[in-house]
Design a binder for these strands. Structure first.
Lengths: 368, 368
DNA sequence: CCGTCCCATGTAAACGTTTTCACGACGTCG
DNA sequence: CGACGTCGTGAAAACGTTTACATGGGACGG
């Protein structure tokens, strides 16, 4: 049926071992036989069977990615970062999404056994013990934006709490006293951390926390739209809306436009994530940059590093938190008043697609 | 090292064949032994090695996806559609991106040999003969948005030309006589088809085609931004800008905002693709809906169908074109004037994430 | 009571690589 | 001139499944 290494060997008049050696350059082969083998391989359009190869070597040359969803620019960016780093190490990506509960995650993990060398799992909705139970042992695993876990998985998160506190402080500093918050999905780890940050920011400013201004969303544009309607319906609506992610901020901007409310003069809107489109919105969105692609890159790098050293790196920290910095643009109304000498507004459409600047912590916010 | 089926067999006191039969329910096994095997398997947390499994059965249970890039919402949506359909058939996705030239595509294809049962390849920049040369024979393949090809690959495209003609007609009907166009990347198949549609639309309206209004872009927000600046710098700027995709339309909106030009009253802006965020932009973007996720779903469905019947479906058409319909929103200025009885503006934030309506052709444009 | 059939199970051969081991031939050094 | 590496190669054993084939034991009909 398919052409195998045996066919190549037969036609070239050598053993399969020699063919393998030629194709992998794994041992010296006489130049004449080498060329003969390569010729036959090319003629037959032979390409080695990946499954057989992974079975024989004990590595698959692929990384597994398990995601709750792939809707929106966030996951697109994350995947891009992961892919970029994986490709550097000649690894491909086995992607499986739409896994919210640990049953689904468990199934996906099992399906990947033997076809991937490492695993990246994003499971913001699943509690730590349940998750620990389904993760495989013996496979380098990085948990993205999840809770701490007591398996041998490395946990990589973004400073959700710190970023939300910083953003709330920024709004307070701009003069807002009624700040509405549109939270993420219930039970979602990122969502609750960001909410915790918002509440702390409000509390430390000495403002009265009012649950009516703290509405539930779901990280989708539609959720932001609904949340905004809810906030506008309050007897005394907020003067600023803090959406727990950029997608909801987009929905908020849309709802405000429909309501005829001008941003930022009549209402400030800020988001979280700094998805690529944020800077191109009308008005450009003030948000918290988390370096999504960098997060993905780092996750892949961690898995690959664990793969490189045969023994699991016990000395290395089991947890890493990436910084989240406030990026001030026009949608919060603070743009005009803020000191403009920090970072000149220039060339923003030219910025590199993969901005590594967020790998290192930036003190305070930055202006773009 | 890892626990294998042999370990399970040994501890359960049966042969490996029996274990396999239990786990796959492929043959009747006495209830008592079945339970014993399942218990041991659970205790040992056994999960079968995927590589070995793919080698033994002659199928991998995975589909390969080869993309030029994964930047932006377009690819995110496409991947989502593919994943959705693949998951329905219990297949996972092996994704490889950043492949622009046929050398890279060839390498990716070879790396996937034996680990995937079918292939979806998006290679808008590669010419047909080159591409045909690197595609594998014997593996069901669907080419996305590529040129027709004389291999045995199925070609699935969107009606780029028709959509662009329709959109241009719409702008003409709205009263525009100077329509700027921001094209996609050179040598990109989608890009040139859309450009061809724009030119035809202009021509058939009896307007003089002026190359100065037909500027080069690159399908990125930054490219749209630059293209818009170029159009604004013309001695007599256009009154409408047709960006060859939504990402560039986003860049255009951003550039116009910076220039203090109000959309749509002073300038109409339209895009192509109808990425999810389009309806939430300020103003909501008039664009050409291609049903990105549906495209992905259909591609996966075609591969899976070819997989189901052992022989390649010769009777089936080797090419399919999905409709592209104009979606009128606010950014083109025609919204207020157009008859509003067609489709009431309602519930747009609630629309289902995966809209299958574009699978079937809709006569004329639709209003949202 | 014996032949036949079926059911549950075991044995072993695939599947297509890589890799270890062995083995000649050849050159080098003592 | 013999012992000893080195180099090129082949044979065969992994790798962990699935599955065709074989086998033994019980049920059942004659």
């Amino acid at each position: 049926m398919h052409v195998t290494i045996r066919d190549v060997a037969r036609l070239a008049g050598v053993s399969v071992a020699t063919v393998s050696r030629v194709l992998n350059a794994s041992a010296p082969v006489r130049e004449t036989t080498r060329e003969r083998v390569l010729d036959v391989a090319r003629d037959l359009r032979f390409s080695p069977n990946g499954a057989a190869r992974s079975l024989s070597r004990q590595r698959a040359g692929a990384l597994g990615v398990i995601l709750p969803d792939i809707y929106g620019e966030f996951f697109s960016e994350l995947l891009r970062g992961i892919d970029q780093e994986a490709q550097r190490a000649n690894h491909s990506l086995l992607v499986s999404s739409s896994h919210h509960d640990c049953r689904g995650i468990g199934a996906a993990v099992r399906a990947m056994r033997g076809r991937v060398d490492g695993l990246m799992v994003m499971a913001p909705d699943v509690s730590a013990p349940l998750l620990a139970d389904v993760l495989p042992r013996g496979v380098p695993t990085v948990l993205l934006n999840g809770p701490a876990i007591d398996g041998d998985a490395f946990v990589l998160t973004v400073d959700n709490y710190g970023g939300a506190v910083a953003m709330t402080r920024h709004l307070v500093a701009t003069g807002h006293v009624r700040i509405g918050f549109i939270a993420g999905a219930e039970r979602n780890h990122d969502a609750s951390e960001r909410q915790r940050g918002y509440r702390e920011g409000v509390r430390e400013a000495g403002l009265a926390y009012d649950a009516a201004y703290d509405v539930r969303g779901d990280f989708s544009e539609a959720g932001g739209w609904r949340g905004t309607r809810a906030l506008l319906a309050l007897p005394s609506p907020p003067s600023a809306i803090f959406a727990a992610n950029d997608a909801m901020a987009v929905g908020a901007l849309s709802a405000l436009r429909e309501a005829g409310i001008v941003v930022p003069t009549e209402m400030a809107v800020v988001g979280f994530d700094d998805i690529p489109v944020a800077q191109f919105l009308n008005p450009p969105l003030t948000t918290v940059r988390v370096g999504i692609a960098a997060l993905g890159e780092r996750a892949a790098a961690l898995v690959l590093a664990a793969l490189a050293e045969r023994s699991p790196p016990d000395h290395a920290p089991r947890r890493d938190v990436l910084p989240a910095v406030v990026v001030v643009r026009d949608s919060c109304g603070a743009s005009a008043g803020a000191p403009s000498h920090l970072t000149p507004r220039s060339g923003h459409p030219e910025r590199s697609r993969l901005d590594r600047s967020s790998w290192s912590s930036t003190p305070g916010g930055i202006r773009i």
